[in-house]
């Protein structure tokens, strides 16, 4: 009897939630190979290249000033590697994956992550047929350039507002993740404006589909980034200080 009651309750909860969150086809990953018209593919490549050059220089500078940081850079890359390989189910009934660039952004700044993100995307495009070479420029702009820029802005803004280091890291990683997919839908909406309503109609459509999918994943990414940061604060405080992660005594709670 007790079991039956429990079962019924679950059914009820399930139906309520199913009504609230109707499964929609979601697409919330990188833009697939060949799915951007040629002129847009070239445009986004052109946008991404200067950032990659600046990013490469920024990394070289950091490593010359601070050779110990190589391991931390490896960690940032590894973190992005793991997170972007994890396709996680979401409330919309489809899967997407986090980006993992928030950690490196807080450690090395947004420019360095353009190179790291680019490498992850290249790996996925070549070996996994996930994303693609023609869309690599566009995907680099969303995941490796704008995502980190948003994360960096959020991190700086929230530490200035007096939020704790952990909260600043959480918000930076989560919003950077979410921002990446907003940019992806802008890119798609620009390339495929709707006949009725143009860019904005398409943008609402694309972003409406992915935003809900991405929210829980963005939260997960924020939490995981905080976990790694907690660890770094405990065992690698000297390196964090050398990278000037903390400004004006913002460290710890």
């Amino acid at each position: 009897m007790k079991n039956l009651k429990k079962y019924l309750n679950w059914k009820l909860v399930y139906f309520l939630l199913a009504i609230m969150i109707v499964p929609k086809p979601a697409f919330a990953m990188h833009i697939m190979e060949g799915f951007l018209p040629v002129e847009w593919a070239i445009f986004w490549w052109a946008v991404s290249i200067p950032f990659l050059v600046i990013g490469f220089r920024s990394i070289r500078k950091t490593i010359i000033e601070n050779p110990e940081a190589k391991m931390m850079l490896g960690l940032s890359g590894a973190f992005a590697f793991v997170l972007s390989a994890l396709k996680i189910p979401s409330v919309t009934g489809s899967c997407s994956h986090p980006t993992g660039v928030g950690l490196g952004t807080v450690l090395f700044g947004p420019m360095a992550m353009s190179v790291v993100g680019f490498i992850v995307l290249l790996f996925q495009a070549l070996l996994l047929a996930h994303g693609g070479l023609t869309t690599l420029g566009a995907n680099t702009v969303s995941m490796a350039i704008v995502g980190p820029l948003i994360a960096y802005g959020v991190y700086k803004g929230s530490t200035k507002m007096g939020l704790s280091f952990s909260w600043a890291v959480f918000l930076a990683a989560a919003l950077g993740d979410l921002g990446t997919y907003v940019v992806t839908s802008i890119q798609l909406a620009l390339a495929f404006p709707s006949d009725v309503g143009g860019f904005f109609a398409s943008f609402t459509k694309f972003s409406g589909i992915f935003a809900i999918t991405q929210i829980p994943l963005a939260i997960s990414e924020g939490i995981l980034t905080v976990v790694i940061m907690n660890f770094l604060q405990k065992y690698n405080l000297a390196e964090l200080k050398a990278l000037k992660v903390f400004k004006k005594g913002a460290e710890q709670q």
């Binding site: 399930y14 939630l17 086809p25 697409f27 697939m32 799915f35 996680i88 189910p89 009934g93 489809s94």
Partner: peptide, 26 residues
Amino acid sequence: ILAVLPLFFQKGAEFGGSDDQAEAEI
């Protein structure tokens, strides 16, 4: 928990990836 909960809420869903659905949308 965040990753597992959707599996219970959306029992009928396919949990597919992006590619085919994106193609349809475009």
